[in-house]
């Protein structure tokens, strides 16, 4: 991903007229696609027959709810987004969309997505969706993000809930297996995000956001990544023993988990995040996620963590769609 057309750090007012695509960008479509994927997995894994139109509406509500919370996040964080290289091109800090418009869009879509979920699906799914939006926009964005190094650990719950919402939409309940899917994403978030922040932490330090590498240093962050990875793998394997996953899932979770641990160990032994990257300095050009050699291990774990989560949920989807049996009799 390149970041060549970077505007200046300060908001510019209405430099160019807002295009409709700018409002789409407020919804963070790439994050939305991940939420749709995990929400769909929860919905399918529930194993309850559901009218395809209502299933599509449930997934649409989850996607729009995620977009709403992203828009609220961009409204609230415009001041720090404007000063960070990774985010200064977003519609609000770049001056293409006014903050009040992002706020209005976020509130409107929150009401529409939760309201539609109540009318079309059920109250539990709607309540979980409302809680997820609230947790991301208020608890994470407005409170945790700027106040504690545990921000993404606790805030990760918002990203972990979509499979539970999908499950609740299909079944009307949220049993242990649904929360197991939530636990996987919850425990996956710290090693995933901290691996990234090891080579982008200067941006956060510049704006005073207490990301773990900024507060505790690179070595402590690498150790915590290793600890969270050790905790993550048993949770990823667990669905194979609760009737949720089958042999394919167990193979993917086990082998992928081993590779995850190897990469986390390599990262722990590396010096990633310990030297300042000159490309992150003000006015520097170049690709955002280009990293110097010392941060290669952090980049490798970051990239593999995305693949690992994807194949885990894809394996569950394949098993449930094609009726491959679970390991339990």
């Amino acid at each position: 991903m390149t970041d060549t057309a970077v505007p200046s750090a300060e908001p510019q007012g209405r430099a160019t007229p807002a295009r409709w695509q700018d409002y789409v960008a407020l919804l963070k479509p790439r994050v939305m696609s991940l939420v749709v994927f995990t929400g769909l997995t929860g919905l399918i894994c529930a194993g309850r027959p559901m009218h395809p139109v209502l299933a599509a509406v449930a997934i649409l509500c989850i996607a729009v709810g995620a977009g709403a919370s992203a828009s609220l996040n961009m409204w609230y964080d415009a001041d720090i987004d404007a000063r960070m290289r990774r985010t200064r091109g977003r519609p609000v800090p770049a001056g293409r969309v006014q903050g009040a418009d992002a706020l209005a869009l976020g509130i409107t879509l929150s009401i529409l997505s939760v309201g539609t979920m109540i009318l079309a699906i059920n109250l539990l799914a709607a309540a979980l969706l409302a809680f997820t939006i609230f947790f991301y926009a208020v608890v994470y964005t407005m409170w945790l993000k700027r106040s504690t190094a545990q921000n993404i650990v606790i805030g990760g719950l918002a990203g972990a809930l979509p499979p539970v919402i999908g499950w609740a939409a299909a079944a009307g309940t949220a049993p242990l297996n649904a929360w197991l899917l939530c636990a996987i994403i919850f425990m996956w978030t710290p090693p995933h995000f901290w691996a990234l922040s090891l080579y982008t932490s200067e941006d956060y330090a510049k704006v005073g956001v207490p990301m773990m590498p900024v507060v505790k240093g690179a070595r402590s962050t690498r150790l915590q990544i290793l600890i969270y990875s050790l905790l993550l793998i048993p949770i990823c394997v667990a669905p194979a023993f609760t009737g949720l996953g089958g042999a394919l899932y167990l193979a993917v979770a086990g082998l992928g988990g081993l590779l995850f641990l190897v990469l986390a160990w390599r990262l722990f032994r590396s010096r990633a995040g310990e030297a300042a990257d000159p490309r992150n300095r003000e006015g520097a050009q170049g690709a955002l996620y280009d990293v110097k050699a010392a941060a290669k291990d952090a980049r490798n774990l970051f990239a593999f963590s995305i693949l690992y989560l994807f194949v885990l949920f894809a394996a569950l989807l394949v098993e449930h769609v094609f009726g491959l049996g679970s390991l339990r009799p």
Binding site: P17, A18, R19, W20, Y23, H51, V53, L54, V57, L60, L112, T116, L119, A120
Partner: peptide, 28 residues
């Protein structure tokens, strides 16, 4: 022109929402 295009997209979104509510009602 940008405002016009935004208005068209907003109108399409509103129509899509009306159709969605109609379809949900029929299915339910």
């Amino acid at each position: 022109k940008a405002r016009g295009r935004r208005n068209v997209v907003l109108a399409l979104g509103l129509v899509a929402f009306v159709v969605l509510v109609f379809v949900i009602t029929v299915v339910r």
